[in-house]
Nucleic acid binder design. Structure first.
Lengths: 365, 365
DNA sequence: AGGACCGTTGAATCGTACG
DNA sequence: ACGTACGATTCAACGGTCC
């Protein structure tokens, strides 16, 4: 175990250690790991239960490890584990933490207060998030990762070319579109229940680990859970150290990791990038002023007209709805493609079909 | 100026006030604005002299300020203006703040510490971000907004239906794809130089203001800059209060706001959700003969049927009660929306859902 | 075989008006 | 203030079944 950096302490490489991550990190030599990925408890503070419109119950996070007395207790915990993480991190290593609005501001503040140097915040845009069932907020469709160097002067690693190649030869942006961990990838027990409430998708860890480490380097995960970080690290030819308090999670992680076949180095560079589909809501044209609120729309024969409202709905007499709904309504047709039906009168009397305004936005990501 | 809430202080509506936003907010009556949008400056120089966001030099010129002091000064400033903002915000009002990874964690932590209740963090995904020229990080392609209520118990406003309409009848997510402010929208001086370094796009403010206010309500921007918030508020038929310390920015903002034409009432009128519509008791439909007593109701699958009584209750076997109670009972569900559950058989065998009968009374006073 | 259809599910801080 | 009853509210992916 070569990486002991002259401390006399050996690194427990490619192992899952069961116990409290703070105590376990204290036993690791300083400046010994190249990268850290940490998915700490989010402190969600859920109250009652939540039902879908069909009355089925949402299986939320209700584990003891996610409960803290208050924000101060959460902050104290955060400072403590981040302090050990910083000690264990090599001088030029980097750390990733992930969270939601419940905890990410506490994490970011703690990182900065401890001297870490934020390099990016990265948005995991979920392809298939849970909707907001009550219609009281925006769909919570992302989580935030913070990527930080040990300090402002760190000469950290960033595999720029690998990230660019992952992204069809344009620079990798700070917003990543990746599906949830579902289907066959999701670990389940015999009854079909999920083994861990918050298992992260391997695609996310693939990108994280590939971005900031080289093969053979050491990735530490202080909150290993069911082992996504370690499994991906192993597949990508990295070494790992996984810390996990719950023996059941740790056991599941070990079994999972054992089943992983390390990739050859060339194969490690390939990723199954899910391409994002393009759909442009009419409302976006309104916001952007391309078809401003107040615009009068007419059909090709100028038989009907409608006024565009600020929310992208249109109104024709008492009827209000989407361009498609109102188009169908006035024609008494079962359906209507509003993009082709409605036109904007141009100076000079020419009509321009809505679809032409949409193509102006087609090029955008 | 009606909204003074009995304080004797008047609200300076539709004005740009020049001065320090903290001092100016102290002169506003408490609980007086419906929404706040804040784009606080992040001018702290991390190398060399330490300056406050208002450009004043922090005392102790000869002192070696380290990173901690930088952050502490920023935190103190943040707490101070957010404290005043919270005082000025109505009980059920909401606040938006925007920032990047340099300051958003400080903002979020301060919001939580002051008792604000985070509703969403929202990602502004930039369509055309500046590339990372050095190739040392991910392209910083987004900024983060935090949307928060004044407190955990606030009954805040969220125009769910309008947001859904803006997004082609799919729930609005927490990641928004909007271009930078460029082209004709970008304010420039005679030489073509940008008037303000971080002018926000109007499309962003359009969505923000539309999501959480009604026409006629008051939007406060403590860091108005060149007036995007006020201009969009005016266009959407909202009132505004803009605070700006730089007289040049304030002057540019005023000129810009003056040139804005408010939308017509019909264009500003946004899709109303069912929650906004008047509540109509089922009994009224019975009284009015729209669904006469004796009518047989069935569910969509014709599994259950019930008979309408003269008092608007319905009976299904031995069960009698409201359309909701009986619907829940027969399904053995915890609750039921009777308007959507029960149907009336039409001549020809078609089923018509109760909700459709309600529409006839919707327009009446 | 393959397309249509249906059931399940995911880190969730998910009411409000009226008496 | 507090209790009660009304009644509003979901998207995409995946896997299994049926025809």
């Amino acid at each position: 175990m070569g990486d002991g950096v002259g401390t006399g302490l050996d690194l427990p490489l490619d192992k899952v250690l069961v116990g409290d991550c703070i105590a376990l990190m204290r036993q690791l030599p300083p400046a010994s790991v190249h990268a850290i990925f940490a998915d700490p408890p989010y402190n969600l503070q859920l109250k009652g239960d939540l039902r879908r419109p069909d009355d089925s119950l949402v299986d939320g996070v209700d584990e003891a490890w996610d409960r803290f007395d208050d924000l101060a207790a959460y902050d104290a915990f955060t400072h403590e584990w981040l302090t050990e993480a910083r000690r264990v991190l090599r001088k030029d290593g980097t750390i990733w933490v992930i969270g939601s609005y419940h905890n990410i501001f506490r994490l970011g503040t703690a990182l900065q207060d401890l001297g870490f140097w934020v390099l990016n915040d990265v948005i995991w845009r979920k392809a298939n998030p849970m909707p907001n069932f009550r219609g009281r907020r925006f769909t919570n469709a992302h989580e935030t990762l913070i990527w930080a160097a040990r300090g402002a002067e760190s000469r950290y690693r960033f595999n720029y070319a690998a990230m660019k190649s992952l992204n069809e030869e344009v620079q990798m942006r700070s917003d990543w579109f990746i599906p949830l961990c579902t289907g066959a990838e999701r670990l389940r027990d015999e009854t079909g229940a999920k083994l861990h409430p918050t298992q992260k998708p391997e695609a996310l860890l693939h990108r994280v680990i590939l971005s900031c480490t080289q093969p053979g380097e050491v990735v530490l995960d202080p909150f290993l859970g069911t082992g996504t970080t370690a499994a991906v690290a192993r597949r990508l030819g990295r070494r790992y150290i996984g810390l996990e308090r719950d023996p059941a999670y740790a056991a599941a992680a070990e079994a999972r990791i054992d089943s992983v076949e390390p990739l050859s180095e060339s194969a490690a560079l390939v990723t199954a990038g899910k391409r994002e589909q393009k759909r442009i809501p009419f409302g976006h044209l309104v916001e952007r002023g391309l078809v401003p609120a107040g615009t009068v729309l007419v059909d090709r024969g100028r038989r009907w007209q409608a006024v565009v409202a600020a929310d992208g709905s249109i109104r024709c007499g008492r009827a209000q709805g989407s361009i498609h709904q109102v188009g169908a309504l006035v024609q008494e047709a079962p359906s209507c493609n509003g993009w082709a039906f409605w036109h904007v009168e141009q100076p000079g009397g020419r009509l321009r079909v809505l679809d032409e305004f949409r193509v102006a936005l087609q090029g955008e990501g």
